[in-house]
Amino acid sequence: MSGLKDAGHLFRFAGLFVLAFLIFLVVRHYIVPKSFGQYGHYRGAAMGEIAAHPAKFAGHDACETCHSDIADKKKTGKHAHVNCEACHGALYQHVAGPEQPKPGLYQRFLVMVGKAIPPDPAVLRHADDPSTVVPVKPDTATLCVRCHTASAAKPKGFPQVNPAEHSNGMPCETCHQPHNPAIDAGGAK
């Protein structure tokens, strides 16, 4: 052991390394988010956060729950597979109520320390009154031509017209009811 007699400085140095490594492990434990590595080399909680993005389109199932009369009318026509929001725009807020402001930092702090109860998401967004957000009636003059203007690039079987020649300036809904556009389906008002 005489060879190690003068090696004290090496052990002290090695001790420092071990200490530094332990400190690194402790710091790392606190800095790396808990869900990192849960599913792979990424933060597992990121998926929940991305999924928390508020939706803007409600989906046609939601529309048809209340507007079953329109759904029935649409079902038999050429526009059966054109969903409501394709023409009427994004209407999640019509279904779920207008978006409420997110709780602020102070509010969340109160919840954290137990001085306030967390808000119920169902109370934050409710659709007691769908009329708070209502769709604007689409203008058929701009809406219909978006799809039905004739162009060589469109599939051949798709119904296409030259709007200027086709209606003589009359709005489309004079002859075609958008929910069931065939003229013999009672289009004219």
Partner: peptide, 14 residues
Amino acid sequence: YHRITQGLTTACCE
């Protein structure tokens, strides 16, 4: 992702 995890389709498909 926020739609398909709720059982809705994507906005573009909708």
